[in-house]
Design a protein around this nucleic acid. Structure first.
Length: 884
RNA sequence: AGGCACGUAGCUCAGUGGCUAGAGCGCCGCCUUGACACGGCGGAGGUCGGCGGUUCAAUCCCGCCCGUGCCUACCA
């Protein structure tokens, strides 16, 4: 165990810059990492040695904020730690660019609207819209041109995101980049549809569906949100056919009176029992409608009796279906009241002439306009069905009530009967719940969000959208002799032909010339819900059905990072897809990040105007400091944005830089760790590694960081380093003692750098490169082995576990004496007396010289004082050297 | 209205059935020290949201309440 004359010294501090420049280092290392392929996934790795991340594909809508940094850095920290564990990390990044967010951004950016009836213009050039252009009417462009503009904008937006990810030092493997609109993803999504069709999990049907009148598309349950809006109960008197009887219903949607197809009340409601089975007569339109009892009617609400319309709400749809009521659809796809004629089939009236006169007043109006006019009309006694005067029996009673909106929409959803494709899920709730329970959620309570949503699911998944920028549904329909499509017998695309667009490719067995001709075919114009594609991200990465070998290596994935507000969409649909396709779970762990809140604890979002854009912060504090901020927030916990944390991160980076500089500048003979103080430090270090590793195993990166950071400051730089400093510099004559100190300091630095590396990749790589890269043969710390027992091989434990603690206590006591005397803690001490219990003094002996050196004490006396508690020290009779 | 989470120092957050409840920032005092003034040392500051209960012992477990946030439900 001799140094045999070999010496260590790695750097001359004079050659290093005084301060660390994070921006310069980040740029330099970013380039080096990419060049060296540090983050490359090895396609030959087995499933066991591979760690697969199902990265969320961001919507590159052009708005970047700290929330993006926050959650993606969480994932990156895990990725880097798993890579250091020796795992073959599969860490792709995709872009979820299809769907409405992109369409909306394109509409705004160019001030255009898609109109499928406009012919394609191959030479179309559109400049970004100016404020002046936006004042005019939007330019109408063809479907093909619109899609091309979407492609153009997504490429541009993705560049901004890609730059941010690089600046944040995300260790993604860019060779695995994909976009949900690219050929591979379109192919996968269409293959998914074919598989679901073959297994009987999809169907198309004509039914009332939630419809956004602005975007003019169907939407799924998961995309619907309630908003509290002011409304009003309108009390309207109805008559009863062949009777003097009348009753008053209460409704918030008087504009749908002409769509009334029934009246209902609770079966036990004494007030209305006599008219069940009779026909009520609506005012104004004089339409007879059945009165029926229903358990769903609440006697406490309104007047206890209500009109059923096609369609005012979800309950109307149920009544309509269960009671087999007429369909009188008034609200059209554009949100305006359709033109109808009373007296014709489906719109029977006891007085068609009056009905049509009244209806003419609201026909073609928007729902809102129609309501206003309707209230006026209801004030007209001529409209009464009973002869009791104006049908509106009271002033409207203002209420506040929840109204369903498409989450991105501006006007309430309407139920409009349309033909849509659905994935059948309602009959599989139990299986979906079982699959959700198989996934390990972090934090565990996030599982409740999934289970809650799944249990309360009330509609199958509507996957068709009447939009343009997205993945086409790969079907056609044969046309009969009259040109009517047969939706019951869709023609499916051949799997080998995917991806295809049925609007530009003819159906198999047909010629393009037969498109939309009687006896020919028609293409499905709808596209898929964007979640239909993004729910396949695990399979997109694994090349499901296309490359079985790769699929076996990558599916199911290990980790799905995501935000909690999209558990009901992305997480739910991904679980559903994996189950329907392969009866599998898509990932073993779902790691759910919290939100970034502004200092007022409001969610940071574009619509609230409280977003912090990340680039200025990266420039001010450096990527490592921003990552430190992200990495200090625990999984699943909402976190307020706080600049103070960035400052702390930057301070830590500086401290690592300086500590590294000091440790690696020490020159000594090579010796093993042998001194008591050093062994005590190494024992603590070993325990730290165990705690940090255990935390990472459970995806608790914040805990690992906090443990490491606390240890770094309080056990390493502020204490051990200070206590061992003198010996390391060679103040003691003993070369072995000096070598031990240097070896322990270097081991401490090496281990701490590696523990910090996942969170702060640039500074740790920088310091690593000064010495350890060559020594270990690991050119990048990000491929270096994660600290483990192997790092401490051959180092004996301390004689007493508390040696370091005791040394610190004695040193602190001397420092306090200096503080009390208002002298610098660096002041030399001529002499002092150190009092402590006999046992404590005995325990201090092996580390005493380090304490005295650190405190710069020249002469000392030890005094036994049995009144002092264990490991308590008192400094007496201190005489300080006068400053020269 | 149900469910979930949260409520700890001025601020941002850790933490645990048991010594005297912690960190950083901020504040006060001292120290230009030899890796680091982008630093060091010392200090003040808390009825751990409230009320009950279980326990030898509760900030932690249980119940109720108050407050905050989120998810879900609620269009007559």
């Amino acid at each position: 165990m001799s140094g045999s004359g070999s010496r260590v010294r790695s750097i001359d501090p004079a050659t290093l810059p005084k301060h660390f420049d994070p921006a310069e280092a980040a740029a330099r290392w970013g380039e080096a990492w990419e060049k060296a392929g540090v983050y490359a996934w090895d396609p030959q790795g087995t499933r066991e040695e591979t760690f697969v991340i199902d990265t969320p594909p961001p919507t590159a809508s052009g708005s970047l904020h700290m929330g993006h940094i926050f959650s993606y850095v969480h994932t990156d920290i895990i990725a880097r730690q798993r890579r250091m564990l020796g795992l073959n990390v599969f860490y792709p990044l995709g872009w979820d660019d299809n769907g409405l967010p992109t369409e909306r951004r394109v509409q705004d950016y160019f001030h255009v609207r898609c109109d499928p009836t406009v012919p394609y213009d191959p030479d179309l050039q559109v400049e970004p819209a100016t404020a002046k252009i936006r004042k005019g009417r939007a330019r109408l462009v063809s479907r093909e041109n619109f899609i091309a503009l979407c492609d153009q904008v997504t490429v541009m937006d993705e560049e901004a995101f890609r730059d941010l990810w690089r600046r944040a030092a995300l260790s993604v493997d860019w060779s695995l980049e994909y976009a949900t609109i690219d050929d591979h993803c379109r192919r996968l999504a269409q293959l998914s549809f074919l598989d679901l069709f073959a297994k009987g999990h999809v169907y198309n049907t004509y039914a009332p569906t939630m419809w956004d009148v602005d975007f003019q598309t169907a939407v799924a349950q998961a995309e619907v949100e309630d908003r509290d809006l002011p409304g009003a109960y309108h009390r309207i008197e109805f008559g009863v056919e062949d009777s003097e009887r009348s009753f008053t219903i209460a409704t918030t949607r008087p504009e749908l009176l002409a769509a009334c197809v029934g009246v209902t009340a609770h079966p036990e409601d004494e007030r209305y029992r006599d008219i069940f089975g009779k026909r009520a007569v609506t005012p104004l339109f004089r339409v007879p409608v059945p009165v029926f009892p229903s358990e769903m009617a609440d006697p406490e609400k309104g007047t206890g009796i209500l009109m059923v319309c096609t369609f005012g709400d979800a309950t109307d749809v149920i009544w309509w279906r269960e009671e087999g009521l007429e369909l009188r659809q008034l609200v059209g796809k554009n949100g305006r009241l359709a033109e109808v004629t009373f007296g014709e089939e489906g719109f029977e009236s006891l007085d068609p002439e009056a009905a049509n006169r009244f209806y003419a007043e609201i026909s073609g109006k928007t729902v809102k306009q129609a309501q206003k006019r309707m209230v006026e009309l209801l004030g007209d006694p001529d409209g009464s069905a009973t002869g009791n005067g104006a049908p509106l029996r009271a002033d409207p009673e203002a209420i506040q009530h929840p109204v369903k909106f498409y989450e991105r929409g501006e006007r309430p959803l309407e139920y409009v009967p349309t033909r849509q494709w659905f994935v059948r899920l309602l009959d599989k709730k139990q299986e979906l719940l079982a699959k959700g329970a198989e996934v390990k959620w972090h934090p565990p309570f996030m599982h409740a969000r999934y289970a809650d949503w799944t249990e309360k699911l009330s509609l199958d998944w509507c996957v068709s959208r009447q939009r343009y920028f997205g993945v086409a549904i790969p079907v056609w329909y044969p046309l009969d002799g009259d040109g009517n499509p047969d939706h019951e017998r869709p023609i499916l695309a051949d799997a080998a032909s995917l991806p295809i667009d049925p609007m530009s490719t003819p159906a198999p067995g047909y010629e393009e010339s037969q498109r939309d001709k009687p006896g020919g075919f028609t293409g499905e114009a709808d596209i898929f819900d964007t979640w239909f594609t993004s729910s396949l991200t695990p399979q997109i990465g694994s090349h499901w059905t296309l490359d079985p070998d790769r699929h076996a290596r990558l599916f199911p994935t290990d980790m799905r990072p995501q935000a909690h507000e999209i558990i009901r969409t992305w997480a739910f649909y991904t679980i559903a897809k994996a189950m329907l396709h392969e009866d599998a779970i898509p990932w073993k762990h779902a790691v759910v990040s919290g939100w970034i809140l502004d200092p007022d604890r409001k969610k940071m979002s574009k619509s609230l105007g409280n977003v912090e854009t990340p680039l200025p912060w990266i420039e001010k504090y450096g990527a490592d400091a921003c990552r430190y901020w992200s990495g200090s927030a625990r999984v699943g916990v909402d976190t307020a944005f706080d600049e103070k944390v960035l400052k702390i991160g930057k301070r830590l980076v500086t401290k690592i830089f300086n500590a590294g500089k000091f440790v690696l500048a020490q020159e000594a003979e090579t010796h093993p760790v042998s001194a008591e103080l050093d062994r005590a430090f190494v024992a603590e270090l070993r325990a730290l590694v165990e705690r940090a590793t255990a935390a990472f195993d459970e995806f608790q990166f914040a805990q690992a960081l906090q443990e490491t950071e606390t240890f770094f400051w309080t056990r390493f730089t502020d204490t051990f380093l200070e206590l061992a400093k003198g010996r390391a510099r060679g103040d003691a004559a003993d070369a072995a003692a000096q070598g031990s100190a240097v070896a322990a300091l270097r081991l401490g630095l090496s281990v701490l750098l590696r523990l910090f590396a996942p969170t702060m990749p640039a500074i740790t790589e920088e310091v690593w490169s000064w010495a350890f890269a060559d020594e270990t043969g690991e050119p990048s710390i990000h491929r270096a082995p994660w600290p483990s027992a192997a790092d401490f091989d051959g180092i004996a434990g301390p004689d007493e576990a508390a040696s370091l603690e005791r040394a610190v206590a004695a040193w602190t006591a001397i420092n306090k004496a200096k503080a009390d005397a208002e002298v610098s803690s660096g002041r030399e001490v001529e002499s002092l007396t150190l009092a402590a219990s006999a046992d404590t003094l005995a325990g201090l002996a092996p580390v005493l010289s380090d304490v005295l050196a650190a405190a710069r004490v020249h002469g000392h006396t030890l005094r036994e004082d049995p009144t002092l508690e264990a490991d308590a020290f008192r400094v007496e009779d201190a005489h300080f050297v006068e400053r020269s």
